[in-house]
Design a binder for these strands. Structure first.
Lengths: 194, 194
DNA sequence: GTTTTTGAACTGACCAGTCAGTCTTAAAAG
DNA sequence: CTTTTAAGACTGACTGGTCAGTTCAAAAAC
């Protein structure tokens, strides 16, 4: 990667970060391109040099963010027996949310919204993330390691949702509480199920 | 109630309904007052005759919607022993979400957003709803009916969140599946915990 | 020499909020 | 019962401002 590419990557990264924070706080429509450029400390022209439109910037952002999450999920469960794999998923999710708090908040806000231009994108990405969880749970059921009356589909979305809500709730309403604490409580809850 | 009052109540109700649907689909900022007026079949001026501003309309909407939810929660747990009370809460929440699907979707999208004018309002209302759940769980722990290593605060927000996410996910992505099905699966999951 | 960034000016669509005027309803006056 | 009055409810064209997206010449980085 030469200097030019690196510089450009860096600009795009700064734009992603600025956009994700602002959109998490205010939502997509309330966030202006001028705001994003200002926070990323670039000129407005640079935004449009790097992205086709505000919407395109947001879509790439979604793809990028959920890609990272799915990677983390896959890495977390690799070679683990089902029960531990589920716990590992929770941990990976919390870890991810801690690192990318703004993105998590944004996901929570946009994931179940209909009628927006990027809804299609988001649906695919959601399937990717929840699908990974569902695979793990299914493997556990098949191996007889998890109860076979478990509704895999509901369990997967419940797992995904409970992590997201509890973690974001913690970030927004009691940010001083150490994450280990929240993680322990949540794992305690989930362990009773699996 | 005379004809005038009835007429006005009716207009306000129609505005609430139009607003809640549009905001659930598109978000607050992306929803225009013209849209709301159009869907409610009134003139734009009528919106401002009945509400001080777009934000005020939304705030009253939130108060109204969460008020109903809290009422349902309180009614559901009345005189029930702790374990059954928790199950009753889940049922009440699902029932509520089925009836006011758009409002639930809206809540899920806006509840954890920061930096918006109505955030204060929302925080209070959230405390009201989750607080009711926390009371019930706490009563269960005190009575020795629920395990005393349960983190009440986390458990309450987890309960609230899991219901919201699972139900909205169901409404958005598999609306044909009967609710009893979802309710059974969810109760199955939660029963393992409590 | 080429790519990337800058910054400021500009356009046109869109949108929250306003207001002078119209319609509706209840009740008072005849 | 019919007409008048007045407040209440509603209307929609209009205004002032905002914002996505464009343009471009000049500068900086490589």
């Amino acid at each position: 990667m030469d200097g030019r590419t690196r510089r450009r990557e860096d600009t795009r990264q700064r734009l992603f970060e600025a956009a994700v924070e602002l959109i998490a706080e205010q939502g997509f429509s309330a966030t202006t391109v001028d705001d994003i450029a200002l926070r990323a400390k670039v000129a407005k022209g640079t935004v449009y040099y790097n992205f086709a439109s505000k919407t395109a910037l947001f879509e790439e952002l979604l793809r990028h963010g959920i890609g990272l999450l799915t990677d983390d999920f896959r890495a977390a469960v690799r070679d683990l027996p089902p029960r531990e794999a589920v716990a590992a998923l929770i941990r990976a999710q919390l870890e991810y949310i801690r690192r990318y708090r703004a993105f998590a908040q944004l996901l929570l806000s946009e994931m179940w919204r209909t009628n927006r231009e990027w809804q299609q994108t988001l649906m695919l990405l959601r399937e990717q993330a929840i699908g990974t969880i569902a695979e793990t749970v299914q493997a556990g059921v098949d191996a007889g390691d998890l109860p076979d009356d478990l509704d895999v589909r509901v369990a997967a979305s419940a797992l995904f949702g409970v992590g997201l809500v509890v973690a974001v709730d913690w970030l927004v309403f009691q940010p001083d509480r150490p994450i280990e604490d929240v993680e322990r409580s949540l794992l305690g809850l989930v362990r009773r199920v699996v």
